[in-house]
């Protein structure tokens, strides 16, 4: 479904002299594929390029070299013709919702702007449905983002992301800012939703246990390169030293 081929991305070094062409390589030779219905976990140190990669996939930025295609088409043109079929949930939920919108407006917006024209009543129903799916109370509809807790806000972001029934969702460290019980609840939710709606996930995180419980495949990103890609079931058989170190350093809790 999603294919990333030999993608390179670098940024100009910020502290360098003006007009210098010193670049900082963020991503080097990134290639991988995600099949429909799969859940790929991407794990890497903060600063290793995972956010950059997600921005490239979401077409918020362009790679310097290489290609990103979805169902065979370049991601740019695919997004134009398949509006609403790709969505994203970001790590920072405090800036993910327009602070001037009410919760109802935020969730209804992607539905209203989608290719299909729904009347007001249908949209209202759909919004209520989504709230129910995510175990949120109706009272939240009239509130503003800053009045909600982190766990609630992130669930609203997920509701908004699935509002248009997308086929592909990018989760960019979506659970990292939540506490443990919120994480557990939302993980369960994501598993259910994926099955119900047959979605494909790209799950970026720095927490291996979370990836292990949600994803089918995991990819390790180290200093801008993919150093290992392995099925989650075979996690104990990783070869790469960085991946091994990562697994060993997980604080055990049993």
């Amino acid at each position: 479904m999603l294919k990333v081929e030999s993608v390179y991305k670098s940024y100009k070094k910020q502290n360098s002299v003006i007009f210098s062409s010193e670049k900082q390589e963020i991503l080097q030779d990134i290639s991988f594929e995600i099949q429909r219905g799969e859940c790929l976990g991407l794990i890497g140190e903060s600063g290793s390029g995972n956010s950059t990669l997600s921005r490239l996939i979401l077409n918020l930025e362009k790679p310097d070299l290489g290609e990103i295609t979805m169902e065979g088409k370049p991601i740019q043109s695919w997004l134009k013709s398949h509006r609403g079929e790709m969505s994203v949930v970001f790590q920072d939920y405090t800036t993910s919702i327009n602070p001037f919108f009410t919760i109802k407006e935020s969730i209804a917006e992607p539905i209203r702007r989608s290719k299909f024209k729904y009347d007001k009543q249908t949209i209202d129903h759909m919004v209520l449905d989504l709230l129910e799916k995510l175990h949120l109370s109706r009272q939240l509809l009239v509130r503003h983002p800053h009045e909600l807790s982190g766990g609630q806000l992130q669930r609203i972001c997920i509701a908004r992301a699935i509002a248009t029934r997308p086929h592909f969702i990018v989760f960019d460290e979506a659970l990292s800012s939540l506490d443990v019980s919120a994480q557990t609840q939302i993980l369960l939710l994501l598993k259910q939703l994926k099955q119900e709606m047959n979605m494909t996930y790209l799950f970026i995180a720095h927490d291996l246990p979370t990836i292990a419980s949600l994803c089918s495949t995991v990819m390790f990103l180290y200093q801008g390169r993919i150093v290992e890609e392995i099925a989650v079931q075979k996690l104990s058989q990783v070869q790469n030293p960085y991946a091994k170190k990562l697994i060993d350093s997980v604080v055990n809790f049993d």
């Binding site: 609403g84 969505s87 327009n98 602070p99 248009t164």
Partner: peptide
């Protein structure tokens, strides 16, 4: 650079819509 603008772009809203509905009120 706020995430809700990024979301709007990914969701495919037109530039004019984003300017008028999201940026201008802000």
């Amino acid at each position: 650079d706020e995430n809700y603008i990024h979301f709007a772009k990914v969701a495919g809203y037109s530039n004019l819509y984003i300017l008028c509905k999201h940026l201008f009120p802000a």
